[in-house]
Write a protein that binds this DNA or RNA. Sequence first.
DNA 1: CCAATAGTGTCTGTAAGACAATATTGG
DNA 2: CCAATATTGTCTTACAGACACTATTGG
Lengths: 251, 251
Amino acid sequence: MAAEEQREYDPHDYPPVAATVDIVALTIRGDVPHVLLVRRGEAPYRNSWALPGGFVRPDEDLATAALRELSEETHLTVAPHLEQLGTYGTPDRDPRMRVISVAHLAIAAGLPEPKSGSDAADAQWVPLSRLGFGDGAETLPLAFDHAVILADAVERARAKLEYTPIATSFLPPEFTIAQLRAIYESLWNEPLHAANFHRKVRSVSGFVIDTGHIAPSGRDKGGRRARLYRAGEATLLHPALLRPSITSTTA
Amino acid sequence: MAAEEQREYDPHDYPPVAATVDIVALTIRGDVPHVLLVRRGEAPYRNSWALPGGFVRPDEDLATAALRELSEETHLTVAPHLEQLGTYGTPDRDPRMRVISVAHLAIAAGLPEPKSGSDAADAQWVPLSRLGFGDGAETLPLAFDHAVILADAVERARAKLEYTPIATSFLPPEFTIAQLRAIYESLWNEPLHAANFHRKVRSVSGFVIDTGHIAPSGRDKGGRRARLYRAGEATLLHPALLRPSITSTTA
DNA sequence: CCAATAGTGTCTGTAAGACAATATTGG
DNA sequence: CCAATATTGTCTTACAGACACTATTGG
């Protein structure tokens, strides 16, 4: 900020601004993507579902605040992927006061049940399909502008599947190519060609590394047992795995 | 934010938080990229260069605040491309108080001289090369964490050249393919194959549209006169124009 | 053996990078 | 005509998508 502004617009001249973080935590359970939501116990939007979040404490980093709020709602076994999504500060987004919220996207492998009995009366994993993403027709209403934040988060995640290895963040340390493909398919909401996906993933250097292990005997049905891989060192996929739907002409 | 938090952590329990916007305004002048900087007239970082910015006013949107601050420093003829870059809120980034700054990236065609005599004692277009981007060895120090913000902005712009048509935001309404190529070359800091660039740009649907006009007689030297194009409707380039340097193996 | 899943081989169309060749224009 | 810039042609290589085929494994 320019110091010159400081002279004209002293912060104390302004009504208080609250800084909060909101977290869009995504995980995959039973092959379908879920988001962590809490049920609000107070007005406004009492009884509506909302994204977990809260005030940024003094001397606390934004990412730290997001991680703290997230761990207050769910048991974290491993450090999730966490990135800043964007900041939402429309003047009237919260009817009580000016609230500027820094939204974060968190991704983790099959997180266990949310903590209940925490401050959040009710924290739950909700399938994205019940929020307008994917098949489901119904769309659960969300508090504040959280529907917009969620939409931005989902689009961010979908886009980053293309050129980063975040898909592996949804999975345990060792996984099969088929599991990885399931992540892509459920988030993009379209089937992928298994054989080509397999070859492509293995050809992107640094995406997955063969552990030499073999997956345990699948389910009831037969089928060859798959090799197990772990995430590689790459932070950018090259070449990218483009979404089939986007491959069609843009204009 | 979850209402439940509100109960435990009332905003009034906290020391004040200031919300500001900072703007990284980029433009091309004489074929080299420049960023708009202001010289600070007050402590801290008195006399250092800093990004333009200032407090978000009540009832003002974040983007509106960014646009206002930008237009206070430079004459805007057309609406620039403006996007949110990220939010910087490390507790001690401003020694005076807790300041959370929402950084924006602005891009516009050859902006004229900055306003002088405005609050900013001294607003100036500074070549990116003097800030550690490109050839120049010297690196001008910036106030606060503005060097980090600038680095993030430059990387964002470089990346978006690949898959969005933002390059056209640096140019006047009608431009030649060579001018467009100059934007890419100066920002990526590497030469591109003119013939292939020409064909590629024209093959991406919705990127540029032939106006039928012919550019005026170039400079002193000879050379065929180029066709003039205007920006198309596409918001995403397909296929993308990948940076040659990244084409090499990732891992 | 049959069904189901994993993984490999091949072929075709698209697109990128290299290089050559043609089209214009100022001097 | 010469130098310089714009634009088009071709060729080679990489890679995505389609499809056929081989490899395993449970029942």
